[in-house]
Simulated assay, not measured.
Amino acid sequence: MRAKDAVGQYGENVAASYLAAAGWEVVDRNWRGASGEIDIVALQGTELVVVEVKTRSGDGYGHPAEAVGHAKLSRLRRLAAQWLDAHDLHPTGVRIDVIAVRTSRTGAATLEHLCGVL
Rank of each mutant, 00 (worst) to 15 (best):
A80T: 00
V14I: 15
R2T: 07
G36A: 12
L19R: 08
W83H: 01
G62D: 03
V53P: 09
Y18C: 00
K4M: 09
A15W: 02
A65G: 11
S35E: 14
G107P: 03
V26G: 11
L76K: 13
D88T: 05
E12Y: 07
Q44R: 15
R77A: 15
V49I: 05
A71D: 14
L114N: 09
N30D: 13
S57C: 08
R95A: 09
V50Q: 04
G93Q: 06
E37C: 08
R32E: 15
G11T: 02
W31E: 07
G69M: 05
Y61R: 14
I99M: 00
T55L: 00
W31T: 04
A86P: 12
G62T: 03
D28L: 10
L114S: 07
E52S: 13
T106A: 08
T106W: 09
Y18Q: 01
G107Q: 05
I99D: 00
D97Q: 03
H70P: 11
Q44T: 14
A80F: 00
A6R: 07
T103K: 00
R77S: 15
L111K: 00
A86G: 08
A34F: 08
R102N: 14
R32T: 11
E25F: 06
P91L: 03
A80M: 01
R78Y: 05
I38G: 12
A67C: 09
R77F: 10
L79S: 04
S35M: 08
L111A: 01
G36T: 07
W83E: 01
L19V: 13
G33A: 04
S17L: 13
S17W: 03
V26P: 12
R2G: 12
K54P: 14
I99F: 00
A100T: 05
L89K: 10
G45F: 02
K54R: 15
R32P: 09
C115I: 05
Q9L: 12
T106I: 10
A109W: 02
V26Q: 10
K72A: 12
E47Y: 00
N30V: 06
I38M: 13
E25R: 12
S17D: 12
T110F: 01
L79F: 06
V50N: 04
H113D: 03
R32K: 14
D28G: 15
E47G: 00
E25G: 05
L19G: 13
S57N: 12
T55V: 01
L73V: 09
L111Q: 02
Q44Y: 14
I99C: 01
N30T: 11
T55P: 00
G62W: 01
V14N: 10
D97S: 03
R77I: 12
L76V: 09
V41R: 11
A6F: 04
Q82I: 06
G45M: 02
R95H: 09
G45H: 02
A65W: 01
D88I: 04
V41S: 11
S74M: 10
A42W: 02
L48K: 02
W31F: 05
L43H: 05
I96P: 05
L76F: 15
Q9T: 12
A16S: 15
V41E: 11
V68Q: 08
Y10A: 03
G62L: 03
L76T: 08
D39P: 02
S17T: 09
A67R: 07
S35R: 11
I38W: 10
T106G: 07
E52G: 10
K4A: 12
T110I: 05
T92M: 08
V117F: 00
V27S: 11
G93A: 15
